[in-house]
Computed example of a mutant assay.
Amino acid sequence: MFSRAESGTTRPNPVWKRIHDDLSSRIYSGEFTEGFPGEVQLAEEYGVSRGTVRQALRPLREAGIIISHRGRAPQVQTTDPWTSSGPVHSLLPPLEGDISRGTTHTTVQRAELNKEAAAHLGVESDTALLHLAWTYHPDGPPISLGHSWIPLRYAEPLTDLDFTHTSVYRELSVVCGISVDGGRETLRAVAADAEEAAALECEPGTPLLAYTRISASGDTPVEYRTGSMLGSAISVTHRF
């Protein structure tokens, strides 16, 4: 039976989630660049049923990280769908491609109390939260900015981590053992105010796509996020 030491959380993870987190770590390390194993092979490797493997793979498939076609071996998506901007946003030409080559400039990285964020996360107002703020630069000027609040009991290993070339979701999975596999998000069109224009190096009034997001692991909210992206650089795709 597959087992893995718990990290960053006091609640036990089910077997399928531990397998999911382990596979995520292996994917991000580049282990499966030549092809991804099938369900039968993974079931034998981890010593679990095929149904448990399907549960572990479901979030990876729904996020577009594992791509399967009938009659073909599964493949790993070579670009990173879990970027600092989130899983549903993608860059338009000429910025499309492997956006992991860009850089994240972290402007805030500290533990704090925030009543609004705590309320969105469904925790007590005096719960310590890790607050991260950043701008994302694909290759030159920034195209997005964001703020993220995560209960410190989940994210304490991230308090001193360098996010220049990685993302919050990736490190939550790899470092903390917490996989973001659901949530809800609201998008709206806005005009850049003076503060946003200064951060994004654009003119006030520039069209932006603003969002608020609650990210969850299973049924547990683990992150509250707000942010804005240049409208000219972003497309949004939803499956239905």
Rank of each mutant, 00 (worst) to 15 (best):
D98I: 03
V236S: 10
L161K: 14
R58Y: 06
L95H: 14
A111P: 01
R188L: 14
V168Q: 02
S179P: 07
C202A: 13
D21H: 01
S235P: 03
D139M: 09
D22G: 05
G231Q: 07
V88P: 00
L42D: 00
G30K: 09
S68L: 13
Y211H: 12
D181H: 04
W82H: 08
P207L: 06
P14N: 08
R72M: 11
L158Y: 02
R54Y: 04
L92V: 09
Y211S: 12
V222R: 06
S235F: 02
C176N: 05
F240G: 12
R61W: 05
Q41I: 06
G140K: 03
E62T: 12
S7R: 15
D181I: 03
R184T: 08
T78D: 09
S148T: 15
R101K: 15
H89Y: 01
W134P: 00
A63Q: 07
Q55V: 00
K115N: 14
H165D: 13
I67T: 10
F240T: 05
Y28I: 03
T33E: 13
L200E: 10
G8Q: 08
C202H: 02
T9L: 09
L23H: 13
F163T: 03
A128P: 01
S179N: 12
D181G: 05
E6P: 00
F240S: 11
M229Y: 07
H105G: 11
R61Y: 09
L129N: 06
T164G: 02
K115W: 07
L209G: 04
S29R: 14
Y154R: 01
L187Q: 06
G182K: 07
R213L: 15
T10D: 11
R225K: 10
F163S: 04
G182C: 08
E195Q: 15
V190S: 12
V222E: 10
S85M: 14
S179F: 08
G146P: 04
P207D: 13
H20K: 00
V236R: 11
R61L: 15
S85E: 15
G47L: 12
H120S: 11
R225H: 06
P157F: 05
I27T: 04
G51K: 01
T127E: 12
V76K: 07
V174I: 15
S167Y: 00
S228M: 05
S228R: 05
E31S: 04
R11P: 00
T9F: 09
I99M: 05
G30C: 07
A189Q: 07
R110C: 10
R4V: 10
Y154G: 03
A233N: 11
V236F: 11
S235K: 12
A63G: 07
H120C: 14
T83Y: 00
S84G: 09
L209D: 05
P151Q: 10
P59H: 08
M229V: 15
T237N: 08
T52V: 14
D162M: 06
R70Q: 12
I214G: 04
S90C: 00
V236E: 13
A117C: 05
M1T: 09
E44C: 00
W82G: 00
W134R: 11
I150D: 10
A111S: 15
I19L: 12
D22T: 11
L92A: 11
T52G: 04
R70C: 03
E62M: 13
